[in-house]
Design a protein around this nucleic acid. Structure first.
Length: 430
RNA sequence: GGAAGCGUGGCAGAGCGGUUGAAUGCACCGGUCUUGAAAACCGGCAAGGGCGUGAGUCCUUCGUGAGUUCGAAUCUCACCGCUUCCGCCA
């Protein structure tokens, strides 16, 4: 959520920036008329409330003094405007909720350092690490590798549930687990994150806090509880982890606070019917190790660089080539002010594919969640929130399979994962 | 799932229709004292919002929402959460 104050003071500037950078049309007239109505109604309402409070106090005095005549006179005075007060209060809360709806649908404002563009074509590469190795055979993709090993099964997963699910078996399931373990250990031991375990089902308030609701409900899996209430399967650990401090005021001396969390993620993938239908690239369920930080506003961009580096270090350790790009304004997520995507090299696709997305949200989520901090006796201020995948586990598995494949169909285990594989150095077909 | 009880400021804990935004204690901040610290004493200490250049002023908030009332932390209803006992269970 953007700061209402900024919109009040500078609506035209905000609108033109949003149009230019987001292609988002802010309804200036709607805002201005809503705001001016709010102003009038709020001022009237509060005036009447003050009047009522003052008279009520007097009634209290009168009753205490046994002056019943005066008390009933005063009550009559209140009843003269009681109806007007009530209808004013109703109108005000209606206007306020309209304003909230309007505000919560406005995307975040990209940072000035973000390249302006329309689509992923306009993203800017900031670095490329490692060189794709050359193979003296035709490299296969992870589907062929996995199925030939007899350890990857899409058909049975489809039978059990439906499309876009998969089953891993034996050493591949173990490798998947090893990757997640390795990531958790690295981020906790080397990068100073606190490991955290959270619910996989969350309520609507949490999803509002991080910005998935109200606009992106169709991307989520929902579980109805009652007519009123439902839970949602988390689309990313970002949601439960970022919301742990919803409605809280943190001690500024504790910032930055850094969490790492390994969870399954569930996405309905509505609107991507034709895309990545082969293999494990785009599933309804996948594991991810997520990095989340709560930062002082002065340091959040430094923290974004650091966090992105933490994610990248996993691929450096695995010795798998990748490149990092700055997403252009048109390709960024709704809540973000700046995002780096890390794209891993996949020989089977002969392409770099997204494996991590690292973003700064500044105060956008904090404002929705009411997460603030205070230094000493100072004023409260919204924290900045950041997060990034460190990394997507399933896609990392794909990258290992494809980058470490051999001509005979076996797959070598990367050096740093060997300790997690119980002595297995190479995955061989059965 | 059944029964009972409870949700108040950073924490503990009063208040149970009227100058209560809320006693008291702890914590925290400032001061006096002290070589320094501790103790003691004095003072301060919720958040959000409106209007105002400002001093300031007004409104809202005692789990959430609705209601009763001139007035609600206090009464009513619903929901959420927590605790204890019984049942069930990884």
């Amino acid at each position: 959520m953007l700061d209402v104050q900024t919109l009040r003071n500078d609506i035209h500037n905000v609108a033109s920036k949003l149009r230019e950078r987001r292609g988002f049309t802010l309804d200036v007239n709607a805002f201005v008329s809503l705001e001016s109505a709010r102003k009038t109604v709020q001022s009237d309402t509060e005036h009447l409330q003050a009047q009522r409070n003052a008279i009520s106090k007097e009634i209290g005095h009168a009753k205490k003094n046994g002056d019943d005549q005066k008390a009933s006179d005063l009550m009559a005075q209140v009843s003269e405007f009681a109806g007007r007060l009530k209808s004013n209060e109703d109108t005000l809360s209606e206007l306020q909720s309209k304003m909230r709806d309007l505000l919560s649908g406005i995307p975040n404002m990209p940072n000035d350092s973000v390249p302006i563009g329309k689509s992923e074509e306009d993203n800017v590469e900031v670095r490329k690490v490692g060189v794709p190795r050359s193979y003296d055979f035709e490299p296969q993709d992870h589907v062929d590798i996995g199925e030939k090993l007899g350890m990857l099964d899409f058909e049975r997963a489809t039978k059990i549930t439906g499309s876009r699910f998969s089953i891993m078996m034996g050493e591949m399931a173990c490798l998947h687990r090893a990757i997640a373990q390795y990531m958790l250990d690295t981020h906790t031991r080397r990068h100073g994150y606190t490991e955290i375990y959270t619910p996989y089902l969350v309520n609507a308030d949490s999803l509002f806090g991080t910005g998935q609701l109200p606009k992106f409900e169709e991307d989520l899996f929902a579980i109805p509880l009652t007519d009123e209430q439902k839970f949602y399967l988390i689309p990313t650990a970002e949601v439960p982890v970022t919301n742990i401090y919803r409605g809280e005021i943190l001690n500024g001396d504790d910032l930055p606070t850094k969490f790492v969390c390994h969870t399954p993620c569930f996405r309905s993938e509505a609107g991507s019917y034709g895309r990545d239908t082969r293999g494990m690239i785009r599933q309804h369920q996948f594991d991810k190790v997520e990095l989340v930080q709560f930062s002082h506003p002065d340091h959040s961009y430094d923290q974004l660089e650091a966090l992105t580096g933490h994610a990248e270090s996993i691929l450096v350790d695995l010795d798998i080539p990748f490149r990092t790009v700055t997403l252009c304004t048109g390709d960024m997520g709704f809540s973000s002010t700046k995002t780096y995507d890390i794209e891993v090299w996949l020989p089977g696709q002969n392409a770099y594919r997204e494996i991590s997305s690292c973003s700064n949200f500044e105060a956008f989520q904090a404002r929705r969640m009411q997460t603030r901090f205070r230094v000493g006796q100072g004023k409260t201020e919204f924290v900045h929130t950041l997060n990034g995948s460190g990394l997507a586990v399933g896609r990392t598995l794909i990258a290992v399979l494809e980058n470490y494949q051999r001509q005979d169909g076996s797959v070598e285990i990367p050096q740093v994962l060997k300790g997690y594989m119980g002595g297995v150095e190479v995955i061989e077909p059965h």
